Computed example of a mutant assay.
Amino acid sequence: MNIKKGVKKEYWDYSFKELLNAPVSALIGISEYDAKLLKEALGIETINDYAQLQSVKWARSIMTLAQLEE
């Protein structure tokens, strides 16, 4: 897996376990401003917080099941 496609350069050497505790702004596509808004609106500060968000889990499940639907 090429982590360079998912996280910003300063996080390339982090392990996956370390990335869980990295700020959500470490993800490509989420700016510092976006991270501030996520914290204010949903209490999200880390990548783990974001991944554990129930709506994200539902969205991933729906996407996966839609691919299997006939």
Score class of each variant (00 low, 15 high):
N2C: 00
E69S: 04
Y11A: 14
I62S: 09
S25I: 01
Y11G: 12
W58F: 15
E40P: 02
D34A: 10
L37S: 11
G43Q: 12
W58E: 14
K39Y: 12
Q67T: 13
G43K: 05
F16S: 14
F16R: 01
N48H: 09
R60F: 09
S15C: 04
F16D: 11
V56I: 15
Q54W: 09
N48Q: 15
D49V: 10
V7H: 03
L53P: 00
K4H: 13
A51R: 14
Q54R: 15
Y14P: 02
W12V: 02
W58A: 01
P23G: 06
K17A: 07
E40L: 11
I30D: 08
D34R: 06
F16W: 02
Q54M: 05
S55N: 11
S31I: 05
M1D: 00
K4Y: 03
Y50H: 11
L27M: 15
L20M: 15
V56E: 10
E45S: 15
V56Q: 10
L42M: 08
I3G: 00
Y50K: 12
S15G: 08
I44G: 01
L38P: 02
E70H: 05
E10N: 09
T46R: 11
L37D: 04
Q54Y: 00
W12N: 10
V56S: 02
D34L: 00
S31E: 03
Q67E: 14
I28T: 05
A51D: 13
K17S: 13
L37A: 10
A66N: 04
M63H: 10
Y11T: 03
L38W: 05
D34E: 14
D49L: 04
W58S: 05
T46I: 12
E69G: 06
K5T: 08
K5Y: 08
A41I: 07
E70L: 07
R60D: 10
D13W: 04
K8N: 07
L65H: 13
V56M: 11
S61K: 14
Q52P: 00
A35E: 05
M1N: 04
A41Q: 12
K8E: 04
K8Q: 11
K9V: 02
I47K: 03
I47S: 06
N21R: 13
K5W: 01
L38G: 03
L65V: 09
A41G: 00
E70K: 07
N2F: 05
M1L: 00
